[in-house]
């Protein structure tokens, strides 16, 4: 069974259809990169996976649990899926350590000591142990995004979702975040990553999904995608982002 499975997902905002018959799957330990022009529905797609965005038709399952089923305990399912956002979304009123501890305490019911210990391990992993007592505003964008990744990992997730994790960063900070993500992928984490970083896709991804106007236009192995097997729209998109 795939870790994440979407089949024939349709979603509308009023009469505007933002997702059109989207189907794909992500196996355990697989890294899938999602790319496509701005407004093509990438963020919407990835947010349907943990139910942040509801959808009207189709099914999505994560670890065999149906996301769209009204009977599903969504908070409980979400606690097992990490998510990293374009704008970091650290909680500005909490310190770095408190950011990482909050959901461990309130959702997983870990003790204060346990969550602090897990927090320190993860801050160490992303190279930010010395920032534990600072507040988000005191950190650079790259540091904040690494904390956001640590915050997600603290929940010991079965999969991680990334929505353009580096596109709000200054160029010199992009690599420190991509390095953390690369290490995570090498550890076998199941990942779905919306990004335009084609270098990362070439190095780390197993598969690439290309979206256009709400449709999954390409869904193929990395080698096929960067080889010759891609369609015209994907070709056009790639040449645009690789030359700019």
């Amino acid at each position: 069974m795939p870790m994440i499975e979407m089949s024939s997902v349709n979603k509308w905002y009023d009469d505007f259809q933002v997702l059109k018959d989207c189907s794909t799957q992500v196996a355990k330990g697989e890294v899938v990169v999602v790319c496509g022009p701005s407004g093509s529905g990438k963020s919407t797609l990835i947010k349907t996976v943990n139910g942040l965005e509801p959808f009207q038709e189709g099914t999505i399952t994560v670890d065999e649990i149906s996301v769209g089923d009204p009977a599903t305990d969504l908070p409980r399912l979400r606690a097992r899926i990490g998510m990293v956002f374009q704008n970091f979304e650290l909680f500005p009123h909490l310190s770095i350590m408190e950011n990482i501890k909050l959901a461990q305490l309130k959702v997983l019911n870990r003790t204060d000591d346990e969550s602090a210990k897990r927090g320190m391990e993860l801050l160490d992993r992303v190279g930010l142990v010395d920032q534990a007592d600072k507040f988000p505003a005191q950190l650079s964008g790259g540091q904040q995004q690494r904390v956001a990744i640590a915050r997600g990992l603290a929940m010991d997730p079965i999969a991680m979702l990334f929505d353009e994790p580096t596109s709000a960063l200054d160029p010199e900070m992009i690599n420190e975040v991509l390095d953390v993500m690369t290490a995570l992928a090498e550890d076998g984490m199941t990942m779905m990553v919306v990004t335009h970083e084609m270098g990362f896709a070439r190095r780390v991804a197993h598969r690439v999904i290309f979206m256009d106007e709400g449709r999954i236009e390409e869904d193929c192995t990395k080698d096929d995608f960067f080889g010759t097997a891609r369609g015209e729209r994907a070709q056009e998109f790639l040449s645009k982002i690789l030359t700019h």
Binding site: K47, N50, L52, P75, R76, R78, A79, R80, I81, G82, M83, F85, N87, E89, L90, F91, P92, H93, L102, A103, K106, V107, R151, G152, M155
Partner: peptide, 28 residues
């Protein structure tokens, strides 16, 4: 909205999200 999403994505319930994420920032 991003803050609300971040809280939800961590598994916080509606009430927990209000209490720990939204209301403290709203009060400020």
């Amino acid at each position: 909205q991003g803050q609300v999403h971040a809280g939800q994505a961590l598994g916080l319930t509606y009430r927990q999200n209000m209490r720990y994420i939204v209301l403290p920032q709203a009060f400020r």
